[in-house]
Design a protein around this nucleic acid. Sequence first.
DNA 1: TAGTGGTCTAGACCACAGA
DNA 2: CTGTGGTCTAGACCACTAA
Lengths: 233, 233
Amino acid sequence: MTRHSLTNWQAVMAEVERRIYTREWKPGQSIPNEADLAIEFGCARVTVNRALQTLASNGLLDRRRKAGTRVALHPISKATLQIPLIRKEIEASKKVYRYHLKLQQIEAAPDWVNARFGLAKDVLLFHVIALHTADNKPYVIEDRWINCIALAEVLSMRFDSISANEWLLQSIPYTHGDIVFRALNASIEQAELLDTKENKALFEIERTTWDHDTALTTVRLVFHAGYQMNTAL
Amino acid sequence: MTRHSLTNWQAVMAEVERRIYTREWKPGQSIPNEADLAIEFGCARVTVNRALQTLASNGLLDRRRKAGTRVALHPISKATLQIPLIRKEIEASKKVYRYHLKLQQIEAAPDWVNARFGLAKDVLLFHVIALHTADNKPYVIEDRWINCIALAEVLSMRFDSISANEWLLQSIPYTHGDIVFRALNASIEQAELLDTKENKALFEIERTTWDHDTALTTVRLVFHAGYQMNTAL
DNA sequence: TAGTGGTCTAGACCACAGA
DNA sequence: CTGTGGTCTAGACCACTAA
């Protein structure tokens, strides 16, 4: 991919990668320490350090103080998922994005939401259901619950022109989140919204975001039939 | 999570994160340059650089030479997926891992495989189907095709005691890979192997690994009903 | 062209964990 | 105790790009 001139530490990284890849350094084997490599490559130790740290964070090396650096035995592959705004994702594929609000009200939440939020059973939460379309075809259903105790601002919002997805991401800072991916059989309602048949296998992403120990919002994104999520290794 | 004493650059990072999170520095806004921050924090510029680079790689900052550093407008969330060996994944949940070879033969590949490999239609490829179980319950079907032109070693392998998954990962180096996640309705055969019903929504991961421009192997992993993939944000 | 981030260096000290 | 990686510093030069 990158057709640029390599910086020094990238060159060191590339050379180390090459030695691992060609099995000059085999899985499980110790490689020379940073100081020796710095001498061999004729650079500062920090430069070697940066290269090896990067490789270690990619899972290609195991590093321990005193024990030294070894080629990883089980290269735990790491894939990085980009999770963009739905609107951006659709616009990136050069399709026309549209947004349709289906429901916005305050109501008691179902069990799975209360479980996620760690709230009592009959707390009222802000509930939004919306459909995002690409070129006027259903793309994803956004079924969102918002903790309006922690986020009182939401009570005055109308999500008919801006999606809750977008408003939250731009306006509400969070400290961390968790994500679950799963497959589910379409309910009758989901099938109707997504223009497919009941029981069709659909891809779902469930995301909850937190401000420290307080859950702010949880959303289930149910994608149209045939949706695929891609990434590189 | 981390209850350790922070290193200096981590402290700087934490402070910058705090300012972003508390909106002292708002989305889109420029923050002071590295030199000024180094003075303010009483540390070397490199230390600030490391902190800001880390935040930028997490998507929280946008950095451009001359233009300076700004708080990201659209915090593109990045989630890192760990893709371990199936055996490790099962053992990590303290269940008993077992492996059952269902098929191993050389045959002409279906279209989707030829498409991935960029090969002619009637090339013969190495085909393996296996079931991985956790506590004797079906966990995932591994349906794998191996490019035995590029990987002649595979012709002498018997995958009845070691899985192709494991052998390939430990023995065959690759330069990169791509991954697709999707949902599918169980076929009759899949339902039977996974002890569920036809048309049940199942989670599938399709992974292809490459040595430069040569596809080495492609695999479809179809998980048991109810499987979820988790990650943090 | 000038300001900003990106990288590099030599040297230093520290923290951890193996022997 | 000692070898190794982890981090920090001050200073320098380079590379990109907005003005």
